[in-house]
């Protein structure tokens, strides 16, 4: 129970920072975005609790993603309201406070981070090339098999 209280408080604090950023950066009045923020907090909280309660060892983000999809899919009663209200919370307004906290936290392991240096640029290039080529090759095989190209 203590954990759940802590989650609610922290999600609330995070929500306030998001709503203010959402206001300054994307011109959405906080009052207008509060319902959407509460919906997102509810989804996140449900996922965090499920990950703790259920026996499978899946990360909480797996549950959160599924809950988010289920409550907003067209066959779900009330999904229109969920979509409309959460639309007022901008995706980028959520990422700004995340990376502000991340910047502060990264300081602790900054020297390790710097050591990655140029190597991370090399690896990143191959990460993107790998995905791009891998997907293109598989797409080519399937499209040819289907006779589309």
């Amino acid at each position: 129970m203590k954990n759940v209280q802590e989650w609610i408080l922290l999600l609330g604090i995070f929500g306030v920072a998001t709503l203010i950023g959402n206001w300054i950066g994307y011109d959405v009045l906080p009052l207008e975005a509060i319902p959407g923020m509460l919906v997102l907090i509810g989804i996140a909280l449900a996922g965090l609790i499920l990950a703790k309660v259920l026996p499978w060892k899946l990360p909480s983000v797996a549950y959160i993603g599924i809950i988010g999809i289920v409550v907003s899919m067209p066959w779900m009663p009330g999904s229109e309201w969920v979509i409309r209200s959460t639309e007022s919370v901008n995706l980028l307004a959520l990422t700004t406070p995340i990376l502000a906290y991340a910047g502060i936290a990264i300081g602790r392991s900054w020297t390790d981070f710097v050591q990655l240096g140029w190597r991370s640029i090399v690896v990143a290039s191959f990460v993107f090339i790998g995905t791009f080529l891998g997907s293109a090759v598989i797409a080519e095989i399937i499209l040819r098999a289907q006779g589309i190209i």
């Binding site: 929500g15 409550v71 907003s72 995706l91 906290y101």
Partner: peptide
């Protein structure tokens, strides 16, 4: 800096929730 870490995780849960409601429709 230590206290910031759990907030990153909770912030990310909200982000995933948001991505979820983008995908649903």
């Amino acid at each position: 800096a230590k206290n910031a870490e759990p907030l990153i995780i909770l912030g990310v849960t909200l982000l995933i929730a948001k991505i979820g409601v983008i995908i649903g429709p």
